[in-house]
Amino acid sequence: MPAEPGKIPAPIRNIRELHAHLQTALEVEHSTIPPYLCALYSIKDGLNLEAAELIRSVVMEEMLHMILVANVLNAIDGKPNLTHAKFVPHYPAYLRHSNRAFVISLEKFSPTSVDTFLKIERPGKAGAPVERGEYATLGQFYQHIKKGLKDVCKANKYFNGKASKQITSEYYYGGGGDPIRVSNVDDACGALDVITDQGEGIRNSITDGDHQIFHQGKELAHYFRFKEIALGRYYTGKDTPKSGPTGTALPVDWNGVYNMRPNPKTGYYPQGTDLWVKSRQFCRAYRDLLARLEDGMNGQPERLIAAVAGMYDLKYKAVALMKTPCDDSGMTAGPSFEYVPPNE
């Protein structure tokens, strides 16, 4: 993490540091996906349709964020890396940019997990400065990167990445807006703005600005989508952060969920047992998926087709684990998202 505890983060001074920050951004964006996926997959088929759709929409946008960051990084000739040993956090973990105010876990869909999601997506106060070392919100982190981009890449210096490495809507679809092709500082800042707007929202509003940028229907920022689930009620077009949701009820059935043991680990099961094997298979599938995504972000966009197939497969593997009792406690196994070396 660029900023050490207790210190105000130093400005980004050179292209190497800028690359490092963007790589961190990639990891931060990714780090929320496994927890969101666990909650999403734990919802039994056909139940909690509304909540599942909201979470799915957030996941789709997190994936878009990864692509946007990769496009910025590729535009300045960086090299997105999704396969190094520390890319996937060891859950439970702190959010990687954060001031360590809370821990994120792999958990089933529950009031607790939704509460964590609210903390992850909490909007920053307008203009709040970076405090005591680390970033209180994602927005602050991206502000820092944007400043770095403007400082380091004056007159679009360093924007000499290959255009073929930009991922566009040919390969990304299914909600959350369109990837932005990045070829200069303005594009880059625009791309990073989409990330913060979708996550935290436009200042003093519940919407995410998608309808301004992508001409789509009005969409809520992530924080407010989770708020709807937590409060069991939809926002209306007239609502504000202060008013809270005043729309129709959003039914939530906290019991319509697989009872996944939190933060599953392959090591919970004796090596070689069926559950151990299945848990490990899941991790290998996840490793392979990340590898294909990395290929896709490094000039082989056609590999993203295999990556999408990998995402579906991952879901089926995760749900199978969540249907399997892990012991006699009434809890089930689950996807552990643990690192597996490339040659296993």
Binding site: E53, S57, M60, Y173, G174, G175, G176, Y312
Partner: peptide, 16 residues
């Protein structure tokens, strides 16, 4: 622009 599911255009953007 592909036309997806008539109930939710985000779904069915590609043959799956």
């Amino acid at each position: 622009r592909p036309v997806g599911h008539t109930g939710d255009n985000n779904i069915g953007q590609r043959c799956e």
